[in-house]
Write a protein that binds this DNA or RNA. Structure first.
Lengths: 102, 102
DNA sequence: TAATATGGTAAGTTTGCACTTACGGTAAGT
DNA sequence: ACTTACCGTAAGTGCAAACTTACCATATTA
């Protein structure tokens, strides 16, 4: 399974997107992430595991707190995946436009 | 709901990713897309609707066939979303590295 | 050492969603 | 006009996954 696949699967869930966006600016502990999310802390832990396996976040322990921050690896994998569709989509579009003219 | 949200939701499903990749190089009719996918044609139709609403594909009729091709709009929306995490993730990482030194 | 705070995991429940079959609708061919 | 091919939608089903509660482990503080 590709990293990008895990990435799209991870960000396919709205709660995980909310978590991802919450740690966008600065690393946050799990308790802080949970606040205002509307789900229990164990649920957050399970989501974090999926985000971690998709290389979208990294976790580093500091005392009893586990700080989560954005990981570039997963993001880059997803960007590369989307980039591969970029050129081909353009050429395909041009082909159709050509066809219509005739 | 943002276009990028719909995009991640759409590509979060493996069958929809398979469809998306199948029309990567050239537009395909629904029947052709269905071949070798392992799901029924109605299932494909339902997936196509979701991909269309996420601006990831466009559909144009030609006789009785409905040709599907990649749409740049949805892709661009997702790329923009990921780009917004790019810089901030870097600065956040630097902040943590600074903190560790002290 | 006792108490508190943080958080991961196990087990069970529920709900959303990906799938199916059945049907109708349109366009092209004979 | 009849048949065939292509396709979307409606309705119902089954399962994966997102949630819950309960429990345990670890690290800090008093």
């Amino acid at each position: 399974m590709r990293t990008s696949d895990k990435g799209f699967n991870a960000l396919g869930d709205p709660t995980r997107r909310a978590i991802f966006e919450k740690i966008r600016n600065r690393p946050l502990a799990v308790v802080e992430i949970t606040k205002g999310l509307g789900v229990s802390r164990p649920a957050v832990s399970q989501h974090l595991k999926i985000l971690r396996e998709a290389r979208l976040i990294t976790v580093h322990q500091q005392g009893t707190k586990n700080f989560c921050q954005v990981d570039q690896q997963g993001i880059q994998a997803m960007k590369n995946y989307l980039d591969n569709f970029w050129d081909t989509a353009l050429t395909a579009y041009k082909l159709v436009a050509e066809k219509k003219k005739r």
